[in-house]
Design a protein around this nucleic acid. Structure first.
Lengths: 121, 121
DNA sequence: CTAATTATTAGGAATTATTCCTAAAAAGTC
DNA sequence: GACTTTTTAGGAATAATTCCTAATAATTAG
């Protein structure tokens, strides 16, 4: 029932990073810890870890999928220009109120596309 | 400054559909109105129309990008199992409050992944 | 209106992100 | 320790999207 070495490495890489990583970045970092780990192993385990609720996947428009170690409810701000992804932690918005009763919520994703301060100049 | 024929057809196809279409579906429908229109023309014009705020693009996890004729603020419910995409029109949530002042908001996207009634059985 | 300039197109190649396949290795079970 | 199940590496395949190029269409200037 424990994680395989490879699965643990994927999880470690994500948790060690404070930010948000793409599958490709995770692959590169995991490869340093365990050469020959394969990209399909990365993808398979990312899928499993998301399923298990241990990580979060973030799909923003025109961006590759990012993976996030932070699984507590929060939202995201993505800069359309440089792609930088930032967290917004604000419990004010309770998304569940919006969902009809006969639907079972799996996850929610609020992404705000913007131009960040740096890219406005 | 007017739309080219091709661009107008892309817009028409989206507006004529009440639902949400993928680029591929738009391509098939546009091709009926104008054979030989090319897929890259579809993509280029979808990009432009999104830029101009005439349509909306929706990126949900594990789904192709959908395009929406409805540009008034609303949210989306996507079924993880069958992929069906539905609108939620509810103004209760005001996302802009969450954004730091020095960021310029381009668009917001709230997507709730769920299992729809039909897929729960 | 016609020539020059600019934008857009079709078609296909290329790229990117992701999934699928298979035989070998590892892990878990009895 | 043999059997069963799961996972792996590696690469091929697929899907979605972007890029490239020469030809065409639209716009502007004269």
């Amino acid at each position: 029932m424990g994680n395989t070495q490879q699965r643990q490495i994927v999880l470690d890489v994500i948790r060690e990073s404070k930010g948000h990583l793409t599958a490709e970045e995770i692959f590169i970092r995991a490869n340093k810890k365990r050469p020959n780990i394969s990209l399909s192993t990365i993808y398979r385990n990312l899928g499993l870890l998301v399923e298990q609720g241990k990580i979060l996947s973030i799909s923003a428009p025109d961006q590759p999928t990012y993976f996030d170690h932070n699984v507590t409810p929060h939202h995201h701000l993505v800069c359309k220009s440089c792609g930088k992804l930032e967290d917004i932690c604000d419990p004010k918005i309770n998304v569940n109120d919006l969902v009809p009763k006969d639907y079972k919520v799996i996850s929610t994703s609020l992404i705000i596309t913007c131009i960040c301060k740096h890219c406005q100049s």
